[in-house]
Write a protein that binds this DNA or RNA. Sequence first.
DNA 1: GGGATTTGTGTTATCGCAAACACTCTGGGC
DNA 2: GCCCAGAGTGTTTGCGATAACACAAATCCC
Lengths: 345, 345
Amino acid sequence: MATPSPRGDIPPRPKVAVMEDVAELAGVSAMTVSRVLNAPEKVRPETRARVLAAVQELGYRPNSAARVLVTGRSGVLGVVSFDTTQYGPASTLYAIERAARQNEYSVSIASLDALNRRSIAEGVGRLIAQSVDGVIIVAPHESATDGLRHLPPDLPVVAVDAGEGVPFPVVMVDQHAGAARATRHLLSLGHRTVWHLSGPANWVDASARVAGWRSVLEAEGREVRKPLVGDWSARSGHELGRILAGEPDLSAVFVANDQMALGLLRALREAGRRVPEDVSVVGFDDIPEAAYFWPPLTTVRQDFATVGRLAFQLALDRIDGVRGERRLKVEPELVVRESAGVRGG
Amino acid sequence: MATPSPRGDIPPRPKVAVMEDVAELAGVSAMTVSRVLNAPEKVRPETRARVLAAVQELGYRPNSAARVLVTGRSGVLGVVSFDTTQYGPASTLYAIERAARQNEYSVSIASLDALNRRSIAEGVGRLIAQSVDGVIIVAPHESATDGLRHLPPDLPVVAVDAGEGVPFPVVMVDQHAGAARATRHLLSLGHRTVWHLSGPANWVDASARVAGWRSVLEAEGREVRKPLVGDWSARSGHELGRILAGEPDLSAVFVANDQMALGLLRALREAGRRVPEDVSVVGFDDIPEAAYFWPPLTTVRQDFATVGRLAFQLALDRIDGVRGERRLKVEPELVVRESAGVRGG
DNA sequence: GGGATTTGTGTTATCGCAAACACTCTGGGC
DNA sequence: GCCCAGAGTGTTTGCGATAACACAAATCCC
């Protein structure tokens, strides 16, 4: 029934080869071709060779849509994320994609314009509509956490950097520990207390860093100055830095990320306060440029690659039916450079 | 035939609703449901309302695999890219995703570990296997350009920043013009000539920037010093900067990107050469941090968002059958800050 | 008022693949 | 020599949607 038309001259459309074509060329049934592709050990070697040769000759590629339709599995993982132009999310995404590729998965993305329940649900919806096998959500905002509670319960979901109380696995850098480490480092250099330039409200990592910083100061009985709230940008670091620069007793600042730290460094310099001699600064993230700031920035390195890898692994487990609500924490690492020195050094 | 088993007690699996279920609930045929979803104007308003209510009630979502199978269109665009942790590629990808979303497309990514023909072909292959409708290649390397010549000819492909001679549309920032603009700016400040820290060999934008820089110097009859070749990183900028800092007649440098410029600034400072008083520096990209370098970096802004948008549009055109081998150039813009000043200023 | 549209809906076939089951051998045990 | 196991392959069916066609009722034309 391949050419049912009574008229002879059908323009030979350049159709791509399908399984039946391969079967015909190899002199077997379509089912055998399917087996060669999915369970080669069930086919006699010589048959297999004939089929593979035919596949090669026709440049045959299985049609994924048909396969998805019948198997219910797409081999696609969805990633929902916010602002992938930032180093952190971009690195996480990249690591997820790498891990996925190594496991024969591919990655489809859904960027968010805003971080709120509606937006998250909508992003996940776009991915579900594509028949993804699972979803990783990289949206470290509390409103996201909220939205995550109302997702299809049977969908394998993993979150990166989500807050407490979400009903599925979460992978995160231990922000609290990282902030504590940075703060302790500054105290150990002799500073009486440490100021904080924080990330925006309701971002889970911003809050965790505030908490980590605060916990160390309180444990040591140091004065806790109210954090100045920025928006992750160098611009905000600069603006807040101008305020900080006016504080006569300022000697150490823990900044919520490296971009804001850059802005702060500039503000301090403009105010004539030397770093690290007059003021010590510690950042967070260890972006590749941090080592080339002036002075080279002491900061807390987040291993985004590991986070991405783990998130993928957890997602894969969920897809394969492994349950559990694990929270995986990745340890951050303090990278000591030159922006923090001994008090009055 | 929904429950063919003679035994009554089949555990009611939580199957998702399909079109037939919606049809039944609304008291119409599946075809009518399909029409409500795809061509609502062809259905009487009251019928439409009943169907939509049923869709709502069952939480029905069309199965994309089935739709792809029959329509041959997936609504997915593939993006092949290299190193999306960098600001440029990440921004481009983000803009593509945005544009895609606004046109009811979604985006699947294929990151590359290496830039060569095999790798590119393999990345495209992964996307094709997913039935993408088209592919955008963001891989500004000459080996890529080479690999691009050997792709399935019927696949809608658009390249970002590809070299000459690829057989499909290309969107790019006019790197040559941008470099020329930067160079002219430095000359206009009274510098006798301009040195160049270039990007790595065989990157099309690196080459174009070298060419733009050289063309201005030659046109003005200035001495052309051999460019120092870096790898886009701040580290390489710093290393090469140490070499440059030893050049007594150095007074102006055009750097191939902002990260390298950051490294150079640091090297110059370490060598005791003030910027911009002793040496003027101009970068390329205008990353968000550039305004907060010390001194604030004069640089050439690339409008990645526009590039991404245009690339998507071109891809969409191709998918819709519009042919042509257009090359779209986006004009870069010189952003004057403080790192470049008058000679001997 | 009778045929020609038009409008709204249903029926059937099909997309490309794999699951389930059926069949044909081959070889081995007794 | 018969039965059986299992390896290897084929046939049928169905995944969930839409295209193409079929058809009934409403609307139109002169």
